[in-house]
Every structure is written in structure tokens, then in C-alpha cells.
């Protein structure tokens, strides 16, 4: 066991993957000498060389397209997208090529590409630096999508993503990069699956589902709720595509109430998918309609207003009050 920051844990996981498999290469902007703008790849070019850690020209579509070519050639590219908002030039390559090649070639060509994306808000950045674009990718068949919430998962799941023969979008909550936690580096990758959701706090009245940056916030909300006598179970999804509905369902059968929270906009988001799927699976167990506590349907706002957009403890508790039928901000109106 050692204590490390979230960012360091990703770095250590990539290092281990590179040591274990010479076909693992890293590609991205400023990831070499600088170690990335968040320093997640710090020291890796120095230790593995410029042929394994490639500072690429400034062109995301080209990074992704050449990663596809590298994968054809038997490599396992790990691509860093500098910020969430800069993934869109690569969108065409991801959706039309990375996601579909295995299907198109009837399994002949594998795309073991990992796409690392620092995502989410809360760091006071300008436009394009705080987005949560995960739903574009969960909506795209052929991609696996995960989001990590703590250093141990960051360490383990980056290796599982790299080892996976399918393409994996790996969303890193950038505002938690500096959070420290215990990491067991001797962990067996096969001992866990990156597709499993984890119950991170147990409770029996409300199921609170989230992922990535809001997991710590949701845990805090559960503690605050327990002070008011409400028992909240918190589920960290970890995998966003596919979603481990069995774990959520088991929880909701127990609690009868579901709240989903994410930073991404509400409409067409993951919360909608979870609410619909759980309603289909265990409608008869629900005491109240599922409630979503999410970012608004707006472009990510300028930083002075970002904490209005981002779900926080109070907004989550308001959602908990709603499913509990307690006084809440929408009391008295039919919403």
C-alpha cells in the first residue's frame, strides 16, 4: 500500500502497463518533456523514450487517426486528450473508425485504444476546459466508457482499460487530481472488473448513483442526510458503458428510491438512461419517480457561475428530499 494522488496513480498505472507490454505507447499534446498540462505523464518520456511517449503535432483528429493506424500495426495506443473540450476534432475518428472497425472487419481488426480525457469542471477554467462529454460516447456503440473516482480505481482501471481489446474512453475528474488515497499496487487486474459498479456507502432509504468527480460529493451528501435521519446508499458507477444495472437494481429494490447526479447536462444524459432502465427493471419497487440532479442544459458557464451549474451537496440533498417526499424546493408544484 502506498499513498498517492489521483494523478500519480494514473501515472503509476500507465508506467506498469508500459513495463508489462512493449506495445503500449502514449500519444498526445505536451505529454513528453512537460509531462502533460496536468503532469499525468510526468517522467514517462524520460524513462521510456520518445518512441513510446510521443509528443504529437497539435491536431486531435490526426492523433486519433494515427492511433488507429498504430492499432492496426499491433500497438496499444494510450491517447491523452488535453482537455474534454478538445476531443471534438477527434470525434469523427472515434465514432466512425475507432468504434466501428472491429464490427466492420467482422472481428479481424481490434482497436485496443485507450482515450484518456480529463473532464468536468470546478477548476475555474475558461471555455472548453470543463466539459462533461461522456454521453456522446456512451451513445456510440463499439466504445467502452469508464470514469474513475479515487486513486485505487484510477491505478487499476487505467491498466484494465489498456489491457482491454476494445477501445475505452477513460474519463478522469480533473478537479480531483490532487486528492490523495491509498493504492495497493500489488493488486491483480483479473481480480476485479472495470465494468462493476461499487456501493461506496450503504443505506436503505435512497439509492444515490453517480460517477467520477461527484462521488466524493455524493458521499458527503449521504453523511449529511444521515444527520437528518435519512439513510442513503451511494453507488459509484465506474463503468458508464456498459452500466452495471444489476448493482443499481439490487439497491433500488431495497431502497425504493433513486437519485442520479452528474455534472453533464440533463437532457439526453446518462441520468435519463439510468432512470429509464431502472424504471423498466423494477417499477414496482419504486416509491417515487427517479430524480436527476445534474448540470443545466447550457454550455458550461464562465467560472464565476460554475458552482451554480455544478450539482453540489445542497442540490443533491434537495433531490434526496424530493424522493423522500420531504419539503423541497419544488414542494407544492407538480414537477
Amino acid at each position: 500500500m502506498s499513498t498517492m494522488t489521483f494523478g500519480r496513480a494514473i501515472n503509476a498505472g500507465m508506467r506498469r502497463a508500459m513495463e508489462n507490454d512493449p506495445k503500449v505507447i502514449l500519444m498526445g499534446e505536451d505529454i513528453g518533456k512537460l509531462g502533460g498540462v496536468f503532469r499525468i505523464t510526468e517522467g514517462l518520456q524520460k524513462d521510456f523514450g520518445e518512441h513510446r511517449v510521443l509528443d504529437t503535432p497539435l491536431a486531435e483528429s490526426a492523433i486519433m487517426g494515427t492511433a488507429v493506424g498504430m492499432a492496426y500495426r499491433g500497438y496499444r495506443p494510450v491517447v491523452e486528450i488535453q482537455f474534454d473540450g478538445f476531443i471534438y476534432p477527434a470525434f469523427d475518428q472515434i465514432v466512425c473508425q475507432v468504434a466501428k472497425l472491429h464490427y466492420r472487419t467482422q472481428g479481424a481488426v481490434k482497436m485496443p485504444i485507450t482515450i484518456r480525457v480529463p473532464f468536468g469542471g470546478g477548476i475555474g477554467s475558461p471555455e472548453h476546459h470543463s466539459e462533461s462529454p461522456e454521453a456522446y460516447f456512451t451513445h456510440t456503440s463499439g466504445l467502452r466508457v469508464v470514469s474513475v473516482s479515487n486513486p485505487q480505481d484510477a491505478y487499476t482501471m487505467i491498466q484494465q482499460a489498456i489491457a482491454c481489446d476494445d477501445p475505452v474512453l477513460y474519463f478522469e475528474p480533473k478537479r480531483r487530481y490532487h486528492v490523495k488515497g491509498e493504492v495497493d499496487e500489488s493488486i491483480e487486474l483479473a481480480a476485479s472488473s472495470m465494468e462493476d459498479a461499487h456501493v461506496v456507502a450503504e443505506g436503505d432509504e435512497v439509492t444515490l448513483v453517480t460517477y467520477g468527480p461527484l462521488v466524493p460529493t455524493a458521499r458527503d451528501a449521504a453523511i449529511a442526510a444521515s444527520d437528518e435521519g435519512i439513510s442513503v446508499e451511494v453507488i459509484d458507477l465506474r463503468s458508464l458503458a456498459p452500466i452495471d444495472f444489476a448493482t443499481i437494481e439490487a439497491s433500488v429494490r431495497k431502497t425504493g428510491r433513486l437519485v442520479i447526479t452528474h455534472e453533464a447536462a440533463q437532457s439526453g444524459g446518462l441520468g435519463a438512461e439510468i432512470a429509464a432502465s431502472i424504471t423498466e427493471r423494477c417499477f414496482n419497487y419504486l416509491e417515487h419517480a427517479p430524480v436527476r440532479v445534474t448540470g443545466f442544459d447550457i454550455p458550461y458557464p464562465y467560472s464565476k457561475l460554475e458552482f451554480h451549474h455544478l450539482p453540489d451537496l445542497d442540490r443533491i440533498l434537495d433531490g434526496v428530499d424530493r424522493v423522500m417526499g420531504r419539503t423541497n424546493s419544488l414542494s407544492g408544484i407538480e414537477r
Binding site: I123, G124, S125, P126, H129, F307
Partner: peptide, 11 residues
């Protein structure tokens, strides 16, 4: 908590 003040980080 809602008024964030001037942010300190970014790129």
C-alpha cells in the same frame, strides 16, 4: 459555497 470568488487554476 455558491459564490466561487476568482478561480485560481486553469489552462
Amino acid at each position: 459555497q455558491k459564490s466561487s470568488g476568482t478561480a485560481t487554476e486553469g489552462s
